[in-house]
Each structure stands twice: as structure tokens, then as C-alpha cells.
Design a protein around this nucleic acid. Structure first.
Lengths: 380, 380
DNA sequence: GTCACTTCCTTCGATTTCGAAGATAAGGGG
DNA sequence: CCCCTTATCTTCGAAATCGAAGGAAGTGAC
């Protein structure tokens, strides 16, 4: 059942172009890959014979003969992907082009430690596979997101602030013992950014802010995820100006996270006598026009926006996408916009889009699929 | 005399690998380019016949036969490069591998406007060419750095703060009218970053801070200059925390530039009754242990460092290189280091190097050469 | 000095890739 | 409805690239 993709180099390029939706016909493949049309035809033939591609009707004419539309074959394979949160995990199966086949959410306490958590996830994968995927369709890769930094060199979790027992744990090795397949382990905000990037195909430089219980950010440079040394995208421990002084879990005073994260807002609401369980509940309060909640969210947006001004000037993205459970609160994004427009250089904000994330709840899972496809197609 | 490089695609890759010093033998070319050794041999032969490469003795053995060392042919061509400052221009000729042939500094007031300035630079190029380069060696490209933002799409200067009369001027078009060659126009800090990157060949992600009259920064991502929408790397208009409130030239209060730039330090010294002309003079005062100067520089370093903490957490570079005329003042870099080490995430500072720039005074000219080589070798 | 081993480079037949030309399949007039 | 234009895809000889084999030129051990 498990089986590595039997494609290498240029064959893989073609497959990727079809899987990511960038090309739908041989002609488009030729234009985008730079290969001669004849070579593309030959290789597509081989990919179809190998059961990886399929022809499916014809597309719309652009003034001449209609293209014969290419799709990933339904039998090409599936990817098993998960996104671990503090108290629940979203996990599911997607096909190679990132289309979800089945996705569900299961309770899962990350504080149970890596062994128990990962085994539970793997069991869930096996269940879903048995139930939703014929045995003839191979599993091509395993990907999981974790709410903490991942060292890209070793694929271990390093110095996570909210994952007791995970520090230094070799997540990829543990999964590799169970699946002899490409394994992906990545920070959740990075996965979300990779998923979101799919929705902005003509933009090359993105910042994707995840405003949930914590505050994360993923960075897409030249269309590819920027990892740096493993912590790239961290904005939660930036110092913000403040009258009072709050010590963050990281040990420093006045981190952004201590003022603008879902956790911080929850605490502030509790002080005001309003009990909420999850960041999504705060969105509900804002919708119901509870003044304390609205004011807090607006404040959080302004603070996040102030941090973003620095980064927008520096990185000059095409898009700042705001996602995460808090992002459904309208005032958050408007106050982020206001802060950035006011303070950034005109050249940096000209044509800059600050928009709600497009990829939805499953952004991280799509991102995992997207990155896994890359990994599976890398020259072996 | 003028002539585009007659190389395309893969031929260009080989030439670039030799020019950038990454490969010195056919075997290394084969390893780095991914081409078969036999193909490399054939193509190197052609490049030698074309007068672009030359064989020069043999290198050191690595346990077997000694490699036959490849060099760029001295007749392969030269690039004319300039770096315009507020009151002077450094300009010169470099060969395709970036080795300077002749470099000089000329007085040149950028406030004279683009036409006069650029014509003077071009006249200087022609002089230098006539004097130092045989007519048989062709000019392959023109590159110039300007102290302001450049729109990468149009190669025009946009909203520069210290270049009266230049806003929107089509620098590249103006030069193209005189030279039918690849033309490069780029912000000076970006050029400096590109030049500095040559000195860190095994590091892929760099921030290069230019601390001079102003404060600039260039960003290298994955070994390539990151331009964003044209203003990428700007750190000078970040708001810093402050008791008093200074309005910057950009109209906003408390920009980093208003506190930590050479211009700001000069003004502060003048208030203390110490007159200096150029940022380099401040370095002299620090060397002579003038307490006001040392204190000011230390303060500037701390403020720059505080801004860098945000960016280091976010971008996670391998190296922060500090250049520009102020960087020769030891306390600047030590206080930058202190601020970054103290406040950044451990994962971000693990293995992070904060070091003086290596490329020296001519970094921008080397960078121009480096980028021009890329441009000249791009598939036509 | 000789022998085993390593690395560098070239030779040469097999394979892949290209690109021009043509076949196929549309849409749009008159 | 027939021709003209446009675009997609395939065919086939030419050109490039590859890779295995071997020669060339070293190093180091005995």
C-alpha cells in the first residue's frame, strides 16, 4: 500500500504543475516547464501509463483547438495530514492536489506527550484509510503540524512553550518507524502559510498571521515557505510599548503575545467578569457587540498592526493574510489595517493587500499536503 | 566594443559558477551544475573558444589527479559600476568575476539632478574605459546604486527622501539611451547586501545593515537579493520608543533614523558643541574616546539592535552583517549584539552571527557587479 | 620503485530532448 | 458552408546530453 512516488526530476515537475493547479493541459505544461511540447507529450503519456495522471474531457478553447484537460488520477495516491492543537487535532486525508477527501477533528491533549499523541494520530490515519480509501490507492506521505518551533534540520520540536514533554522529541523519526514514507513535521503557522499561499497563486511574497490562542506567523518568499533556522515568522515575542509591564511565558516583559493573543484576551475578559473558553467565543461576543470584547479585540489588532508595520517595511510583502480563530472578528483586521496604513512607507503599502485568510479552517492541512507533494517529488 | 554575452541557459550557469568563484574545475562544475561531466567538458571547451574562459595552471590535488583550474578570461569583459552618495560617487570597473580593475571616488552632488549626475558618471566610465581597458575587451553592463528606493518593475527612483529632482526619473532608460547593454539600477543598501553576500558563500540568509548618514538594510534570502515591491529592507522609519518626540523627514514621529543615523548623531554632537562633517568623523571621535561620541554611538547601537530583535525573530537570518561608515565604531556593533542576544528567541540567536561587514568600502560596487553578471547571463 | 587507490578529464555509443512541420480540432467571418 | 486564423497535440529527423568505460595524473603505503 505504501509506496514512494516513482517520479524524478522533470517528470516530477510536470506532476507538480498539474497537482498545484498551475497547468491543466499539455500546452500549459510546456509553457510553464520550459520543456518542448513534444517532450511534454511523451512524459505525460508515461505519467498516464503509470497511473498518476488522467485525461478528463476537454477545457475551454482560447480561440483554437480545445485543450485536453489533465487531472491527477484518483488512484495516484493520498496524503495523511494532521494539525495538532493544544486540546484537539484536526486530521484527515487529502489527495495529491490537496483536495480534502475526509477531515475530522478529534480531542487530543498535547500535554499527554509526543508518544501517546502521535500514536493516536497514526491510529486515526489508519482508521480513515481503511474506511475511505481503496487498498489500491497508495499512501504517499505523512505530514503533521505542531504548535511550536521545529528545527528544519532534524525535524525535532525545539523549546516549545506550550508542549510539555515534547522538547527535542524526534517527531519525524517516530513516525518514520511506523511509515516508510516521506514525513513532514512543521510549525502550525508555517503550514497555514503554505496552505494560504495556494490561494494567492499570483502573489509571491506573503505574510500569514495566525491569531488564535497564540499569535503565529508564516512567511512565503518567492512562493516558497521561508524557514530560516526554524523559528522564522515568530512575532509573538516582540516587545510592544506599554504603560504597565506584563511578564510573558518566555521570560521577557511586554511580549505581543501577552497583550494580543487569544489567551491574553481571555484572561482580560475574565478579569472583567466575562468567562470564555476558546478564542472563538470571543468572536461571538464581538458579534453580539459586547463592548469589553470589541474594545479588547480592537486593541489587540492595533498592537499586532504596530508590529506588522516594522515587518511590512522590512519584508515588503504583496499580501498580509490574517487567519486563525480570532480573525473572524471584524475589528481585528480593520485595526491591523489602520495601523499599517498609517505608519508604513507609501512604497510598502502601495498595492499591499491586508485581507482575511482565504484558505479557511483547513489551511494547515492543505499546506501540509502542498509541502508533502514537494517533498515526495524532490529528486530522490 | 559593447557586446552582450553570447551565452544562454546552461552555458551561462557554468560561466556564473566560475565567475562567482564557486567552481574552479570541470569536476566542480559538474558537481554543482548537475550536468554530466562529459557535457561540462564540451561546454567548457566552447566557452574557452569563445574567449570567455581560460585554463590557468592546475589546482591542488584532493587525493587524485590535480584539477585544471578554470578562470574567467581577462578578455571576457568588464562591467562599469557606480555607487552614488549624497555628495560623492564611487565608481569603477570590475571584471565579470567582480575583481576591481580600477575604482575611484569623485565629488558629485546628487542634488544636481539625475541628468547632470548620470551624464557625469557616464563620462567618468568612458574615461576609465579608455584609460584602463584595451578596446578588445568589451563592456558587458552598466550598474549604479542610488541612495533611495528603486521600483524593481520600472527601474525608476521612487519617493526618495534625499534626492531632490529624482522622483520618478527613469534612470535605466536614460542610461540605456547611451549604452545598449544590460543596465542595473538598485538601492545602495541592496547593492551592499549583494556584495556582502559574496563573502558569506555558505550562508543563505543575510541581513546587511548599512549605518552611515542614513540607516539602510539589504536582505538576502536563499542567497538572492530580496526586493519585495522595491522598498524591502527599509528599517530607518521604524518607530522607536522614546521619551521626547522627534519628527522625521518622512512625517512620522520617532523614526529610528531620527535617533540612530549618522545625520542624527552629527546633529546631537553639534548641540553638544562638537562639530563634525561626516559620519566617519564620529568614528574618529570614538577612537579618541570622546565620551559624548561614545555614548551617542552606544545609544544608536542599542536602538538599532532593538529594531533588529523584531526582524531577527521574524526572518531568522544566518548572519547580520553591519557595514557603512559608522560600523567602524566598535561600540556600535557591541551594543547591537547585546540588544539582540538579550531579547531574541534562543532558537533565532543559536548560531546567529552578528559581525562587521566583510566586503569593505567597495561592497556596493561588488554587489553591482554580482547582480549585473546575473542579469547578463539570464536567458535572453 | 611499485602497486593500489583516488580524482580529474575525455571518448564514444546510447538515450533523451529538441524543434520544425504537420495533423487535429476548434472559432469566426463572409 | 467554406476558408482563414488560432491553439493543441503528435511525428520524426537533428542535436544535445548522458553515462559507462578508460586514459591521465596525482597520492600514499609498503
Amino acid at each position: 500500500m505504501n509506496q514512494r512516488l516513482p517520479v524524478q526530476g522533470a517528470h516530477g515537475d510536470l506532476l507538480r504543475l498539474v497537482a498545484t493547479g498551475k497547468a491543466e493541459s499539455r500546452a500549459e505544461l510546456s509553457r510553464l516547464s520550459g520543456l518542448a511540447a513534444s517532450s511534454v507529450s511523451l512524459r505525460v503519456e508515461e505519467l498516464i501509463d503509470a497511473g498518476l495522471l488522467a485525461e478528463e474531457g476537454s477545457g475551454t478553447s482560447r480561440g483554437g483547438r480545445r485543450p485536453r484537460r489533465l487531472r491527477l488520477a484518483p488512484t495516484a495516491g493520498v496524503l495523511a495530514v494532521a494539525d495538532l492543537g493544544a486540546h484537539h487535532a484536526r486530521l484527515g486525508l487529502v489527495d495529491l492536489s490537496g483536495t480534502p477527501l475526509v477531515i475530522e477533528e478529534r480531542p487530543c491533549d498535547i500535554a499527554d506527550g509526543p508518544q501517546a499523541t502521535l500514536d493516536r494520530v497514526a491510529d486515526a490515519f489508519d482508521e480513515l484509510l481503511a474506511e475511505h480509501v481503496p487498498r489500491s490507492v497508495p499512501l504517499r506521505g505523512i505530514g503533521t503540524g505542531v504548535p511550536g518551533p521545529v528545527d528544519p534540520a532534524t525535524l525535532r520540536v525545539v523549546t516549545p512553550s506550550r508542549m510539555p514533554g515534547w522538547n527535542g522529541f524526534p517527531v519525524a523519526d517516530h513516525l518514520a518507524a511506523r511509515y516508510d514514507l516521506p514525513i513532514l513535521v512543521e510549525n502550525d503557522a508555517n503550514l497555514m502559510a503554505a496552505g494560504e499561499a495556494r490561494w494567492w497563486p499570483d502573489r509571491q511574497n506573503l505574510m500569514v498571521v495566525k491569531a488564535g490562542t497564540g499569535i503565529g506567523c508564516g512567511v512565503i518568499v518567492n512562493g516558497r515557505l521561508h524557514r530560516g533556522r526554524g523559528a522564522a515568522g515568530d512575532i509573538s515575542h516582540v516587545r510592544v510599548s506599554s504603560d504597565s509591564s506584563v511578564i510573558c511565558a518566555c521570560g521577557h516583559p511586554d511580549c505581543l503575545e501577552a497583550y494580543a493573543s487569544g489567551a491574553a484576551l481571555t484572561a482580560a475578559l475574565a478579569e472583567a467578569g466575562i468567562a470564555v473558553e476558546r478564542p472563538a467565543d470571543i468572536v461571538g461576543l464581538v458579534h453580539d457587540a459586547v463592548p469589553e470584547a470589541t474594545s479588547l479585540v480592537r486593541n489587540a489588532g492595533r498592537r499586532i498592526g504596530e508590529v506588522l508595520t516594522v515587518l511590512v517595511n522590512f519584508f515588503n510583502p504583496d499580501v498580509v493574510a490574517v487567519g486563525g480563530s480570532l480573525s473572524a472578528a471584524e475589528p481585528l483586521i480593520t485595526s491591523i489595517r489602520a495601523a499599517v496604513w498609517e505608519r508604513c512607507l507609501p512604497l510598502a503599502t502601495r498595492d499591499l493587500e491586508i485581507a482575511p485568510a482565504r484558505a479557511g479552517r483547513d489551511a494547515a492541512l492543505l499546506g501540509a499536503g502542498s509541502l508533502l507533494l514537494e517533498a515526495a517529488l524532490a529528486t530522490p
